[in-house]
């Protein structure tokens, strides 16, 4: 793997301590390099990845084992809201659990995108447990080329 030097090598201060603020800045810089785009610890389920190309935003979330009828998507201006529930059925009597790591229940997640969206043209698909929402920008938010008139 090719490793780019992200920050200059720095010697310890005379007392031998690392400056905590400097360390913090270094860590932030490292995160920016490793994960471009805004990186935030996800606080609300489901975790989402957002990408964009020219005219669209793509929002993807891992939602294994969710019925599509149990997912609701709402778009208003530049705000996307995804709510739903994930059911995990009890296996009934006479079974003993060794591990129980999967969690079920309800979820509700809102995301504000940088541009206004064309709510009528939003499309969502669900495949292999991954939810993909494609959100075209509103006409007004699209970049437009403006020709300079000579005259």
């Amino acid at each position: 793997m090719f490793i780019r030097r992200v920050w200059p090598a720095r010697s310890f201060s005379r007392a031998g301590w690392l400056d905590p603020l400097q360390l913090r800045r270094d860590m932030d810089r490292l995160f920016d390099v490793l994960w471009p785009g805004e990186t935030g610890a996800p606080g609300v389920f489901p975790a989402m990845n957002v990408t964009r190309d020219g005219d669209r935003y793509y929002v993807r979330a891992e939602l294994p084992g969710v019925q599509t009828a149990d997912i609701q998507i709402a778009v208003e201006r530049n705000k996307l809201t995804v709510t739903g529930k994930r059911e995990i059925h009890e296996e009934g009597n006479g079974v003993s659990y060794h591990r129980r790591e999967r969690s079920g229940g309800t979820f509700s997640r809102s995301l504000t995108l940088p541009d206004e969206l064309n709510a009528a043209a939003v499309e969502a698909s669900y495949k292999d447990g991954v939810l993909t929402i494609v959100l075209p920008k509103a006409e007004a938010a699209k970049a437009r080329e403006i020709k300079v008139k000579a005259g």
Binding site: W35, P36, G37, E38, T39, G40, A41, P42, A47, M48, N49, V50, T51, R52, D53, G54, Y57, Y58, R60, E62, L111, L113, P114, V130, T132
Partner: peptide, 16 residues
């Protein structure tokens, strides 16, 4: 990763 070629990351909360 299902992300296509022209897409650039805006927010990344999990890795593929």
């Amino acid at each position: 990763s299902p992300e296509g070629e022209p897409e650039t990351a805006v927010l990344r909360e999990f890795s593929w």
